[in-house]
Simulated scan of single mutants.
Amino acid sequence: MPFGYPGYPGYPGYPGYQGQVQGPPGYGWPAMPMAPANGMGVTALVLGIIAAVGFCLWPLAIVLGILAIIFGAIGRGRAKRGEATNPGQALAGIICGITGIVLGVALLVVLIAVPDDAFEEDGAASGDAGYSTTLVVRS
């Protein structure tokens, strides 16, 4: 069929005719939508989970918790602007980051406030330094 023949896609009466010949994207066609920038929310969630679960390593938990809060706030801002589609992940990262910080600080307070004698096996405070003594008998 030649171009312009009735029933051909370029014919004016053809359904969907827009008055232009098809070309590569960017030449009269709508641009491809941008992929959502979800990296900050995902990063906040991962760091927050690591901080909350690994609170026994309290210095690392506190640092990772702070980073999770920062990345979560940036991710929530991107979601509000429409650049990201995961505001829930960013919020979960903030919550887990706060939890990791609280648990890490609580562990630090326990380690500082509780005396070392409380962790002995027999439960009684003794005056020795924890070393065993032996008796040597010479004949």
Rank of each mutant, 00 (worst) to 15 (best):
P2Y: 07
A44Q: 04
L60Q: 15
W58R: 14
W58S: 15
L64F: 15
G48L: 01
I66V: 15
C56D: 10
N86L: 13
R81W: 07
A118P: 00
I101K: 04
L103Y: 06
T134D: 11
G123L: 00
Q18A: 12
G16N: 09
R78D: 13
Q22G: 04
V102F: 07
D116N: 02
G123T: 00
Y5R: 13
V46L: 15
Y27H: 04
L45V: 01
G93A: 02
G127T: 10
G75Y: 01
G54D: 09
R78V: 03
G75P: 00
V137H: 01
G130M: 06
I69R: 13
G82A: 04
I69T: 14
P30R: 12
A106N: 00
D116T: 03
A61L: 09
M1D: 11
A61G: 12
A118Q: 05
F3K: 14
A113Q: 01
Q89N: 13
V114N: 03
V105G: 07
L64T: 03
A37F: 02
G48W: 01
T43D: 08
C56A: 14
P6R: 08
L45S: 01
G100F: 05
P36K: 07
P30Y: 07
G4W: 11
G127E: 13
A73W: 09
Y8M: 08
V109H: 02
A61Y: 09
A37R: 06
V53N: 08
S126V: 06
I69K: 10
L64R: 12
P33H: 03
I49W: 11
A61R: 11
P15R: 07
G7W: 06
Y11M: 08
G54K: 05
P59M: 13
L67A: 09
G16V: 05
A92K: 04
T99A: 12
L45F: 09
L57K: 14
G127M: 07
T43Q: 10
G100C: 06
I70D: 12
P30E: 15
W58H: 14
L91Y: 06
Y5C: 10
I50K: 02
Y14M: 08
P25C: 01
V109I: 15
T99Q: 02
G123C: 02
G75R: 00
S126G: 11
L103S: 07
W29H: 05
Y5F: 13
V63Y: 11
V21H: 00
G97Y: 08
A35G: 00
E83H: 07
